[in-house]
Write a protein that binds this DNA or RNA. Structure first.
Lengths: 118, 118
DNA sequence: GAACGTTCTCTAGACGATCTAGAGGAAGGG
DNA sequence: CCCTTCCTCTAGATCGTCTAGAGAACGTTC
């Protein structure tokens, strides 16, 4: 049950991570869990994808990292969005909405706007 | 204007191609045009992605090919779905629906089912 | 205090789809 | 004859993801 991010949807991982971090700073392990929870276990992020993604995001200045102790008293790296990251998230959410709607259109699933909050 | 399939959405090309072919047999060039049309030019398939994809689909027995003359009297390879391809399309449409909805959920865009035809 | 499960980070190398950047051919119109 | 449109196809590079690990530190159990 559940699929990796890479079957369909490759390239969406950055968006997912950015969105999770926009709610609350979180460490890598936690990010994976949040994505699974919020998607009702449909999306599974494996660690071999997640950590490289975090490095990528950091290298591009969209997130910053800070060592802290987790709620389980473990050494953990907490990531949070930078201002550039917030802008990036906006852009990626827009791109996702446009693209996924376009796919729906090709599939024949309605022309109308999806019922999503503005 | 318009983006390649590979930004977000990598892995969706097979689905798109299969769906277009389920409506009507078509040649490679035409498939790309149909996808662009139906998505209002949002999705652009470039040929360096399309032809390898067609070979992949054929190798897996989901589509079959036949040389014919196009409506412009050009030599063209028409592709159509095999029975296995129809089943594959069903499966991929289901996977797309589940995954894209899951992404929406992570983004915080509603829990409810999307308004798509059953 | 040894063993163990859990939490947490990280990496090397393989894999595979897409993109870049072309080549090439054949029909039709000017 | 030249040029545009239609149409097919490929080699090589790029890049994100997956496989398959290693490793460390905390808390609990025996």
């Amino acid at each position: 049950m559940g699929e990796g991010v890479g079957g369909l949807l490759q390239g969406t991982l950055d968006l997912l991570v950015l969105r999770v971090l926009s709610i609350e700073p979180m460490h890598g392990w936690g990010i994976g869990e949040r994505i699974a929870q919020r998607s009702h276990e449909v999306l599974q992020v494996n660690q071999g994808s997640l950590y490289p993604a975090l490095q990528r995001l950091r290298r591009q200045g969209w997130i910053r990292a800070e060592w802290r102790r987790s709620e389980h008293n473990r050494r953990a790296r907490y990531y949070s969005l930078t201002p550039a990251g917030e802008r990036r998230l906006e852009a990626e959410m827009g791109a996702w909405r446009r693209s996924s709607r376009a796919v729906d259109q090709v599939l024949g699933w309605g022309e109308g706007p999806r019922e999503v909050g503005a």
